[in-house]
C-alpha cells in the first residue's frame, strides 16, 4: 500500500549497526587458570578491566558473585566471552603482563599512577608501600597508596601483591593475607629471610664490591655473597657509609 515514493524511500532508510558495536557497550567474561586457581576475568574492547578469584567456589557461585561485583563497580553489561583476551593466559602463567592492555577508565588519576608504579616491580621482588608513594611523587600518601592497591581491579595482572609492609610481613591483600604469602613464595620471594633481616632492623643490603645499596629482593642484592654484604636500616645510613642507591630498584628516599 506504500505507493508513495517518499514514504517508501523513508522506510528504506533503516540500517543495522556494525558487528562490533555490542563490544563497545558490554564487557565479556572468561574463566581462566591463574596462580591461585581459576579466576574470573572481564575485558572490554579497551582491555582487561576486572579480575577476581573466589577460592574453591563452584562455577555457578563464582559466576554470580563476579557478575554482581562487576555490575556494582562498572555498571556495564557482562556477557560470556568465547575466548580469553590476547595475552591474558601467558600473563597469568609468567607473572609478566607487559603486552596486556588494561581498561582502567573507571579509576582516578591517583589510582592509575599507583597501579602503573606497581607494574614496574619484577616477579620475585617486593617493595614497601612508601616506595610506591615516592615513585608517584606523593611521598606522604602512604595510606592512600594502600587504599588504591586494595581497590586494584586487576590483581595478579597488576602485581599489587608485590607491595609489602616494611617489617617483612606480607600485609593486607584483596584476596587475603594468606593468598598473598602463597603468591610471593610461589614467585620465589624469600619471605622468611626478609623477616629475619627486619628483626635485625635491616631493610637495605649493600655490596662493598660495587658500593651499591638495594632493596633485599632486588636481583642485584640477591647476588651479593655473604662476605661482601652489609645491612642498613635506611638508605641515608648506607649513603653516609659511602654507598649509592641502586638504579634498578631505586631505594632512594626521594624519587629521582
Amino acid at each position: 500500500m506504500n505507493q508513495d515514493p517518499l514514504l517508501s524511500g523513508l522506510a528504506g532508510l533503516t540500517a543495522d549497526p556494525p558487528e562490533g558495536l555490542l563490544d563497545r557497550i558490554a564487557a565479556r567474561w572468561v574463566r581462566v587458570e591463574g596462580p591461585l586457581g581459576e579466576v574470573s576475568v572481564a575485558a572490554t574492547d579497551q582491555g582487561v578491566a576486572f579480575l577476581r578469584w573466589y577460592g574453591p567456589h563452584d562455577d555457578t557461585a563464582a559466576r554470580e558473585s563476579f557478575a554482581a561485583e562487576f555490575r556494582a563497580r562498572f555498571g556495564r553489561p557482562l556477557l560470556q566471552g568465547d575466548r580469553p583476551p590476547a595475552g591474558l593466559v601467558p600473563a597469568l602463567r609468567t607473572g609478566k603482563a607487559a603486552g596486556l592492555r588494561f581498561d582502567l577508565r573507571e579509576l582516578s588519576d591517583f589510582q592509575r599512577d599507583v597501579l602503573t608504579a606497581a607494574q614496574r616491580i619484577p616477579r620475585g621482588e617486593v617493595r614497601p608501600y612508601a616506595w610506591i608513594a615516592r615513585q608517584i611523587g606523593r611521598p606522604a600518601a602512604v595510606r592512600a597508596v594502600g587504599t588504591a592497591l586494595a581497590r586494584n581491579p586487576v590483581p595478579l595482572l597488576i602485581p599489587c601483591h608485590r607491595i609489602v609492609r616494611s617489617d617483612g610481613a606480607p600485609g593486607e591483600y584483596v584476596f587475603g593475607a594468606e593468598a598473598k604469602e602463597r603468591l610471593l613464595r610461589h614467585e620465589g620471594v624469600d619471605l622468611d629471610g626478609l623477616r629475619d633481616l627486619a628483626q635485625e632492623n635491616v631493610f637495605y643490603l649493600a655490596s662493598d664490591t660495587t658500593g651499591i645499596v638495594c632493596f633485599p629482593t632486588c636481583h642485584n642484592a640477591r647476588r651479593i655473597t655473604p662476605r661482601h654484604r652489609h645491612g642498613f636500616r635506611s638508605v641515608a645510613q648506607a649513603e653516609s657509609a659511602g654507598y649509592r642507591a641502586c638504579r634498578t630498584c631505586r631505594p632512594g628516599e626521594v624519587a629521582a
Partner: peptide, 23 residues
Amino acid sequence: DLDQGFAELYGTYRGLVFSTALR
C-alpha cells in the same frame, strides 16, 4: 538474568535504535 536480558534487548532493538540514531 539482567545480562542475558540485556543481550536479548540489544538483539531485538539494535536495528531500531541504530536506524533512528543514524537518521
